[in-house]
């Protein structure tokens, strides 16, 4: 059964509401003297999203995050957090964000509980709520059993979780995590990842930077790849793969790979290039012009006897390597 919808009814339907943005950056430029670390980055992060910021060291990730954390007052362009301008309303922005730098500081003379009590008081949490909130963040970060342990007795992974517990104390909407897993062993890294997943499920918006690609692919709803201060690509993982597949490499082995056949293949509309290697041909395909299936059909029609037809697999690392050229600032 189908339902007919009249024009009047269509008018009454409210238009789809644009997603509320947790972060909005337009043409962001950060310079240190003559050196331009960030060169006109623009991005939007809707609320509830986990945005992964990927790039080699010195690409401009930390500079961008520091702008959002209100720690970088000198920049050009626009940066809004929850609609608040980071430049003109830094205090209000700070109330909404939890920032964890790559070199997080923990006071080693304090116990974990004293450390959290200090920051809870500093965030002006009412005394009546303080204990409950601290118990909650300790439980969330799985540190309840270490509450009375001195901070300098904790492992690096635990200190990292304690730093995360600290940024959660004032229940921020947006978490800015700069390389939260750097320097951690595999177990600690998995623990931090699970904790971030829990925060994602709680509806927190997270902007996380890393150069450990497979970690972000398991966690992020969208990623942005940055190199030498420029955003090379951004979108969901599927979007990025699709972008990359426009020039997908297909490896071929043929029984009859003659120069004539090679010339014929080069003439197929949609073939960008063909590189003859020792045991195979590597064909770069414009996938928006010619799909993989159509290319296969065209090959067979041109008389090619295929023993191998292998489109190059795409993963985060391949994507990263394709999109970046290994340039450093």
């Amino acid at each position: 059964m189908t339902t007919e919808v009249s024009a009047d009814q269509l008018v009454d339907v409210p238009p789809a509401k644009p997603p509320e943005l947790a972060v909005s950056i337009r043409d962001l430029r950060v310079s240190y003297g003559k050196f331009e670390a960030v060169k006109g980055i623009s991005l939007d992060i809707p609320k509830g999203e986990v945005f992964g910021f990927i790039g080699p060291n010195g690409a401009g990730k930390s500079s961008t995050i520091r702008v959002l954390a209100t720690l970088q007052p000198k920049f050009r362009g626009m940066a809004l957090v929850g609609g608040l301008d980071v430049l003109s309303q830094p205090q209000k922005v700070r109330e909404r964000i939890g920032y964890m730098p790559d070199f997080f500081g923990v006071y080693e003379d304090l116990t974990a509980l004293e450390y959290l009590h200090f920051f809870a008081a500093a965030y002006k949490l009412p005394t009546s709520r303080r204990k409950g909130v601290i118990d909650d963040v300790l439980s969330l970060t799985d540190l309840t059993h270490k509450a009375n342990a001195p901070v300098d007795g904790l492992s690096r992974g635990m200190k990292q979780r304690l730093a995360l517990a600290r940024v959660l104390l004032h229940d921020p909407d947006l978490l800015l995590l700069d390389e939260p897993a750097s320097g951690l062993d595999p177990r600690a890294r998995i623990e931090v990842r699970e904790l971030l997943k829990a925060l994602k499920d709680m509806g927190k918006t997270i902007l996380i930077s890393s150069h450990i690609l497979h970690e972000l692919s398991q966690l992020c709803t969208r990623i942005g790849i940055i190199e030498t201060g420029e955003m090379v690509a951004q979108g969901s993982l599927d979007d990025i793969f699709r972008q990359l597949q426009l020039k997908r490499v297909i490896h071929l082995r043929l029984e009859n790979g003659t120069p004539d056949l090679e010339a014929t293949v080069r003439q197929i509309d949609g073939v960008d290039s063909l590189e003859s290697q020792v045991d195979r041909w590597a064909v770069r395909l414009k996938e928006d012009v010619l799909s993989i299936a159509d290319f296969h059909e065209a090959l067979v029609k041109s008389g090619a006897r295929l023993t191998m037809f292998q489109p190059e697999a795409m993963d985060m690392e391949t994507a990263f390597m394709k999109l970046t050229e290994g340039r450093t600032a």
């Binding site: 954390a69 209100t70 720690l71 205090q91 700070r94 109330e95 964000i97 939890g98 920032y99 730098p101 070199f103 997080f104 500081g105 923990v106 006071y107 080693e108 920051f119 500093a122 965030y123 002006k124 730093a163 600290r166």
Partner: peptide, 17 residues
């Protein structure tokens, strides 16, 4: 000591000037 313990950024994020 704050500089050495890398805790300046954490203090800067507090709701104080």
């Amino acid at each position: 000591m704050e500089a050495r313990q890398s805790s300046i950024a954490a203090l800067r994020m507090l709701p104080y000037q």
